[in-house]
Simulated assay, not measured.
Amino acid sequence: MYGCSAPFALLMGIGMWSLPPSPRWLILKAVQGKASLQEYKEKAIIALSKLRGRTPCDEASEKQIEDTLTSVKSAYMEQESEGNVG
């Protein structure tokens, strides 16, 4: 039973290597201060464009990344303020 599903799992594992990083993950790393915001914002736009099958740096991808950046910043700041004791 497991032997029948192993080839499919192997194909999925190999296929995952071609996927770009998650745009939201890239934005989160930048918001956390682990990377340059502008650099990772550009990488997120390119990754989103690739995932959506659009041309790089189109208006829709940029707007979506800006919206994501705003929501991630607010969620991260809210989480940071909840974690402070005092």
Rank of each mutant, 00 (worst) to 15 (best):
S5H: 10
K73W: 04
G86C: 08
S49K: 00
K34E: 10
P21V: 01
W17R: 13
S18A: 10
S5P: 02
P7F: 04
T55M: 06
E66A: 15
K41A: 07
P21L: 09
L37R: 05
Y40F: 15
A6P: 01
V31E: 10
K73P: 01
I46C: 09
K43T: 04
L51Y: 04
P23C: 00
S61C: 09
Q64N: 07
M16E: 11
G53P: 06
P21N: 04
K34S: 09
T68F: 07
S74M: 09
K43D: 01
A44Y: 08
M77N: 14
R54G: 03
L10K: 14
E78H: 12
L11D: 01
A47Y: 08
Q79R: 15
A44G: 00
G83H: 14
E66H: 10
Q38M: 07
V31Q: 10
R54Q: 10
S61K: 01
W17V: 15
Q32C: 11
S49L: 04
L11K: 12
A9R: 14
A6G: 00
R52Y: 02
G3K: 14
I45G: 00
G15I: 07
G15L: 05
K63R: 14
E78I: 13
V72L: 02
C57I: 03
L11W: 05
Q79F: 12
K50G: 00
L19C: 04
T68I: 08
R52A: 00
N84R: 15
Y2L: 14
Q79K: 15
P23F: 02
M77D: 11
P23N: 04
W17N: 01
S74K: 14
P20E: 06
S18W: 06
S71T: 13
A9P: 02
E82M: 15
I45D: 03
M12R: 15
G3P: 03
L51R: 11
A44E: 00
E62T: 05
S36G: 10
A35S: 13
P56A: 05
A9Q: 10
I45R: 08
L69S: 05
P56S: 07
Q64F: 00
A35N: 04
M1H: 02
Q38D: 12
I14V: 15
S81E: 10
R52D: 07
G53T: 01
Y40A: 04
K41M: 09
L69E: 02
G3L: 13
A30E: 03
K29L: 09
K63L: 13
S18P: 05
R52E: 03
I27V: 14
K41E: 05
R52M: 05
G86I: 01
L10T: 09
E80P: 04
L10G: 05
P56L: 06
A75P: 01
P7C: 10
S81N: 08
W17F: 15
C4P: 00
P23W: 03
K29T: 03
S5L: 15
L11F: 12
E80Y: 13
L48T: 01
S81I: 14
Q38C: 08
A75S: 13
A60H: 12
A60I: 12
I45A: 11
G33C: 03
K41N: 08
